[in-house]
C-alpha cells in the first residue's frame, strides 16, 4: 500500500553546507503491516516519517500510497508525535472531536465516536480536562485517540512512547497492540528501542547512522496476539533481539 522508491533527503545546514540525511531508501509496506523503523538518533528515521506524512518534501525519489504519489499531508496518514502535539486550548474531548468535525462528520455522530474512543483509551473520566492537567501517558493516549478519530488508513508514529517512563511505556505498547489488532491499520513506527520494535512489529527496518540508509529488514515471525510475559521466554524472540541489537551496535559507535 505504501511504496517508497529511492528516497533521499538533503538538508542545508545553518552554515550553508548540504547534509545528506537519508540516502536511497526503498521499501514496500503492504496494507495492514506494522513496520518499525529502528536506528540511532540522527539517522533520519523521523525525517523519513515526516516525508511519508507529506510534512517535509523529499529531495529525490518518490512515495506512492495506493498507487498515487503523495502531495502534501492528508487524513489518510495520521501522525502521532513524541511531543503529543495536543491543542492545549481544547479539552481532551475537544482535541479528539476536532479532526472528526473537520472531516465533515455530523456533530452528534462525532460526539458518539469520541465517547467510544475515549473509552478505548481509558480516558472517559478525563474528557473535560485540559492537556496541561494530564500526565505524559494520558496525553499520548489522547493524541492516539485524536488521530484514530478521523480513521486514517496509515498511522505514522514518531517515537510515540519515547518521552514516557518505563512502566507507562509498556502499558501503552500493550494498549496500542490491542487497538491495532482490532482494525489492523498500516503502521510506520519510529523507535530507537530494539525491544519495542521487535515486540510490536511485523517487520523491522534497521537504519545506519547518518546518512540514514537501510541496513537490514527483519521479518518478525512471532505469534499474535503478543503477550510480553510469554515472549520473554520465546527463543525466536530472544534471537531477534540479539541479532538486531548486534546490528545496531555494529557501526553505531561513531554516533551517540
Amino acid at each position: 500500500m505504501i511504496a517508497i522508491e529511492g528516497l533521499s533527503k538533503t538538508f542545508e545546514t545553518s552554515g550553508g553546507e548540504p547534509h545528506l540525511a537519508l540516502d536511497g531508501i526503498s521499501i514496500d509496506i503492504p496494507k495492514g503491516q506494522f513496520l518499525s523503523i529502528l536506528g540511532p538518533s540522527g539517522c533520519g528515521k523521523s525525517t523519513l516519517l515526516y516525508i511519508v506524512g507529506g510534512f517535509v518534501p523529499a529531495s529525490a525519489g518518490r512515495i506512492r500510497v495506493d498507487g498515487r504519489a503523495i502531495a502534501g499531508p492528508g487524513p489518510d496518514r495520521g501522525p502521532v508525535f513524541q511531543e503529543f502535539a495536543l491543542f492545549p486550548w481544547k479539552t481532551v474531548r475537544g482535541n479528539v472531536l476536532y479532526g472528526l468535525l473537520q472531516q465533515g462528520v455530523p456533530r452528534d455522530q462525532a460526539e458518539r465516536r469520541v465517547s467510544e474512543l475515549l473509552q478505548m483509551v481509558h480516558l472517559s473520566r478525563y474528557a473535560d480536562f485540559y492537556p496541561k492537567e494530564l500526565s505524559g501517558g494520558m496525553k499520548q493516549r489522547v493524541a492516539i485517540a485524536r488521530t484514530l478519530a478521523y480513521d486514517p488508513a496509515i498511522l505514522l508514529m514518531d517515537e510515540p512512547f519515547g518521552a514516557l517512563d518505563a512502566h507507562t511505556r509498556t502499558k501503552l505498547q500493550n494498549e496500542l497492540l490491542s487497538i491495532w489488532e482490532r482494525d489492523r491499520k498500516t503502521v510506520l513506527f519510529v523507535t530507537h528501542s530494539v525491544e519495542e520494535a521487535v515486540y510490536l512489529s511485523d517487520r523491522v527496518m534497521v537504519m545506519t547512522p547518518s546518512p540514514g540508509r537501510q541496513k537490514a529488514v527483519f521479518d518478525i515471525d512471532l505469534p499474535r496476539p503478543r503477550i510480553r510475559a510469554e515472549l520473554l521466554l520465546n527463543r525466536r524472540y530472544q534471537e531477534y533481539l540479539i541479532a538486531i541489537e548486534r546490528l545496531v551496535q555494529d557501526g553505531g559507535e561513531d554516533e551517540a
Partner: peptide, 26 residues
Amino acid sequence: DQKLIWSAQAMGLGPVKRLFAVVLPS
C-alpha cells in the same frame, strides 16, 4: 509548535483555517 501545524494539516485544515484555528490560539 510545528507539530501542531502538522497535526492540523493531517486533519485537512487549509492555510487560512490553520491561521485562525491553530496559529492564533497557539
